[in-house]
Amino acid sequence: MDDKITLAVREKAKELLEQKVVDCFIGYEKATDNLTSRPLFVYKPEQAERLVFDNTCVHNLSKYLLNKKDTKTAVVAKPCDARAIVVLLNENQVQREKIYIIGIVCPGVVDSRWGSAGTEPEVRCQGCPQHTPPLYDFLIGEPTDEVEQDAYTDVTAMEEMGDADREAFWKEQFQRCIRCYACRNVCPGCYCPVCFVDLKEPLWAGIRVAPGENWMWNNIRAFHLLGRCIDCNGCQRVCPVNIPLMLLNRKLKKEVAQAFAFIPGMDPKALAPLATFKKEELAEPSK
């Protein structure tokens, strides 16, 4: 428990709401299991006392901003959450002047599930390359010098498998998918009014829970996050059948980083990697 952060969050929330800088403050409170945390929307200064911040605050709250487009809203953002906000700014989904970002210099969160606070650091926090949010209006904690580079050890391990083993691996993973779309619902990048998977005409992936349809869904979901996934682990955390979705997302993140030296969510003014090109790049096609 980091009481210092909690107190700072409460104090800032109170101040912002009292001075009417914002109409809504999105943060975390203790869940009813009294162990884990859950999102909290605060509208009145006196409610700010319910706010907490500790290492069980796993949720990426940025997605709630999409429902608050017309309301001046403050949001508590860990570095990965702030990257999501940057992507939403890149994609014209939120307006900078409507949001107030409470950046947290993040100590990392733990793999907590309902009824268990957890002790193990979450997968995204192991070797996290960024502890200070890339964008904030108010920062809690001392900014850090970022040195670590993402080693992509998880992705590399996959790449080292044989083709047949990889295909078998994914077949095994995807066959568990129950198509609940929790991954989609939690993802700040998944905001299409109509998702391709829900279309009947053309039918990209049928509604059946079947290998082909599951394969289409999971891969295209990942591909649609190309150059956009900010590595918050949300999809993987909420997957009820534990499909390692971040392995897909991070493979693409690695490719984009290598080919275009682009990390999503770092620069609110950046142009998405698929929205631009350089003439002198990728000279030899797929050789």
């Binding site: 047949a164 083993d165 990889r166 891969n219 591909f223 698929l274 090109f277 990728l282 797929s286």
Partner: peptide
């Protein structure tokens, strides 16, 4: 074709990652 090149240059290793052997997908000019 420059946009196509970027997009498909990302698709190719991804397909391989899914177990679709290198060589089954090709971008040509």
């Amino acid at each position: 074709n420059y946009y196509a090149r970027r997009r498909l240059a990302m698709l190719e290793p991804f397909l391989e990652y899914l177990g679709i052997e290198k060589g089954r997908f090709q971008l040509e000019w």
